[in-house]
Structures are given as C-alpha cells and as structure tokens.
Simulated assay, not measured.
Amino acid sequence: MPFAGAPEAVDVEWLVDVRARRPEAVAAAAARRRTRGLFEERDRLLIVAADHPARGALGVGARPYAMADRADLLGRLRLALSRPGVDGVLASADILDDLLLLGALDDRLAVGSMNRGGLAGASFELDDRFTGHRPQDLARLGFDAGKLLLRIDPDDPGSLDTLHAAARTVDEMAALGLPVFVEPFLCHRDHDGRLHNDLSAEAVITSLTVASGLGGTSAYTWLKVPVTDHPEDMARALAATTLPTVLLGGDPGPGPDAQEVTYEKWRRALRLPTVRGLVVGRALLYPEDGDVAGAVDTAARLLRETVGRTLHA
C-alpha cells in the first residue's frame, strides 16, 4: 500500500554505487554522525523497529511481503525518523548502513539488532544464533544500544544455547557500557510445528524474571515487553522487575479498529512505573490507512500524554 506524506524517493542506484565503489563510506558516515544521549530530549523513548526482514519475517497483516521492497521501507523509515518525538531506530546492519549513507541517523539513536539466526518458520528458529551486530561492532560504529530476542521453549533444547549466548552478550554489552534491550518470550510449537508466543500474565512474568537475571550485572539491561490484552495482566507482569522496560508494538492486524485498539493498549501500559517508552515497527511503518506520519505522531502524542501519569501495580 502506498503511504502518505513520503519524503523524496530513495535513490537505490546511488546507494548501490556507493556500496560497490566505496564500501568504506559506511564507516565514514558512522564516524561523522551527530550522536545524542539516551534521554537527551525526553524521559520517554520512541524507537522505530525495522529488524524484521533479517529474520525472513516480511509480512504485515494480510500482506506476506510488505517489507520486501527495500526502497519503500527506507522511505518509510526516513519519514518516521524525520517526525518530532521520534528518538531513533532499531534495525539490522544492512538497514542501519543504508540509513547512515542517507544521513538519516543524525541526532537519532541507532540500536543494532544482534541475533537474527532464528529464521521465521525454520526448524532451528529457537536456536537463535547471534548472526547480526556483535557488541564490538556497535562500539566501533558509535551506535547507542543493542537488542536481542530471547524465546524460550522448555521442550526445545535450542533454547538453552540461545539463553547462554544471551547471557554472555549481556556481559559484553555491560563491559562496553552499552544498553541492551532484551525481548523475552515463553513459547511453544503447535501440532503443525508453528511457533507461538505465550502472552498470558504468568508466561510474561516468568520470561521477564529469567531475562532480568541474565549475565553478571543487570546495570545496562532493559526489557522489551509485549503488551497483554488485559491491563491488570500487564500490571502484574511488570511488577516482576525493576529494570526499565519499553513496549513492543507487534502487528496490529487488519481491520479499521485494530490500530485504535493497539493505541489504547499502549496508552494504558505507558502509565505503569517501569515503562520508559515504545519500540514499534510495523504498526507505525505500515498502518492500515497508509499514513506513516500520522501513526508516528499518534505514538509520540501518547508518550507525551502519559508522562507523569503513573499507575502503580
């Protein structure tokens, strides 16, 4: 679906030419990027997520390849990053490299996605290897944080390898003084082998307590948390940790009311005392009405409205 309010089109031929002729241009762009502090502008963060393609997860709602057009995705990201109230972007190396070359990351947080080996739908999906940014890559490029996904299925031995790798990555990030956003889920496979995340309050509580205890220190650990359907479940879940948390967006699905339902869930959850922002991808980049700027501005407004209006669990 075309999106409204797009900036100038991304010149793919120029990007490819730079990559082919001057690969060192990526490092040069990273070196001259204007950086900022985590809470330099606000005490709540709005980060746009675009790390889905590196896992082979390209679908949005009923569109299985919505994120497959890279020029279109980059255009949506540039528009989102240009909106007031947006603090940064979470993405895999290829997308962050493109955004660096396009000059779209000045004064914005750059969060690198670290483990992308658990490809969507693969038999090895839970053996989620760290095939993306390494901690030393994030430090070398002057990026601001990293993110890792931690899916745990008690019936899948691959979960233990991912759990161990995640703990060591938390240690490495802390040693470098870099925040790491850990996104934990308890999950299971159905009779057809498809993986499902358990969003019950009990499952979210368990996943958060496991993630909070990873590594030799939690000083630089943040949690990236799904929003449950019931507000009381969300309050119970987030009462299980004192780590700062951000809410993930997920795919709101089709239908005229899906987006509004999603916004209302965010509004309620943002009032909980541990929540420090939103990290949202498809709901902002691919809204049902195509209005990327409108979706981003709505999320920014929700953050402004909930500052200072804390609900204690």
Rank of each mutant, 00 (worst) to 15 (best):
P64D: 08
D87T: 06
D97F: 00
E125A: 11
L90F: 08
L99M: 10
G103F: 07
D94P: 03
D97P: 04
G112R: 00
L109V: 10
D87S: 13
R76Q: 13
A71Q: 07
D69W: 11
R83C: 15
N115T: 10
V111I: 15
V111K: 00
L109A: 07
R83I: 14
R116T: 15
L126F: 08
R108W: 02
D69T: 05
A80E: 12
L73R: 11
D72Q: 14
A66G: 11
L109P: 07
R116I: 13
R116D: 09
A122K: 09
D97C: 00
D87R: 04
L100N: 00
L126A: 07
L105Y: 01
S82T: 11
L73W: 06
A66Q: 14
A91L: 04
D69Y: 06
D98Y: 02
S123P: 13
L90K: 07
G121W: 10
R116P: 01
V60T: 10
R108K: 15
L109C: 12
D97S: 03
G112F: 00
F124E: 15
A122N: 11
P64C: 05
R78A: 07
V86N: 01
A93S: 14
L102Q: 03
R63D: 14
D69L: 09
L100C: 03
L105H: 00
L101R: 07
M114Y: 04
D94A: 14
D97A: 13
L100Y: 10
L81G: 05
A120E: 14
V86D: 04
R70F: 10
D106R: 07
R76F: 10
A71M: 10
N115R: 11
G85C: 07
G117V: 09
L119I: 15
M67C: 06
A122E: 11
L119E: 09
I95L: 12
R108E: 00
V89M: 02
L73C: 13
S123N: 15
R63T: 13
G75K: 04
